[in-house]
Amino acid sequence: MTSYMPPADRIWWKVPVGRVELVWIALALVWCVIMFLMMPYWHIYGKQNLSTEAYQTTPAAYGAKVQAMVEQYKVRDEANLPVVAPPAGSDIYMLGRLWQWWPILELEKDKSYRLHLSSMDWQHGFSLQPTNINLQVVPGYEMVIEITPDKAGEYGVICNEYCGIGHHTMVGKIYVKE
């Protein structure tokens, strides 16, 4: 009679399935396949995909690369943080550490850059607002993403992976110029 008793039929797997269930399973399966295909489709035709380029690194090695970029392309200081304007198409670096994003980047609209991200200590979350792009920043790994800012403005980089007591003070900046 019920779900908490053994099935009425000894060979229950041979009882035919009702039409309601068959139709629903068919519809649901089609939907599952569509959703599955959307991901490879977006890799081919979509513009927002995450690259798989990444390297193992160390805080010291990564920090040295960031430092080199800052020395080469620094244009000014802001709140004791260097503002860096590297040329379009170049490799640009940002590091996360307790509790800041360093340095500030100044980019040109509609130009592409190879953005490198890594952490000097704990895990951090690169959360670019208000456009709302969110990436995990993991110590020991250097992730490289090609980005093309398509709207000018001032963007906040907040940390959205909990990183201790000063987590909420970890705010960085990216400027996008016309």
Partner: peptide, 12 residues
């Protein structure tokens, strides 16, 4: 949980 859409949702 869709691979690319996670970019705009992760850790929010």
């Amino acid at each position: 949980g869709t691979e690319q859409i996670n970019l705009i949702i992760h850790n929010t």
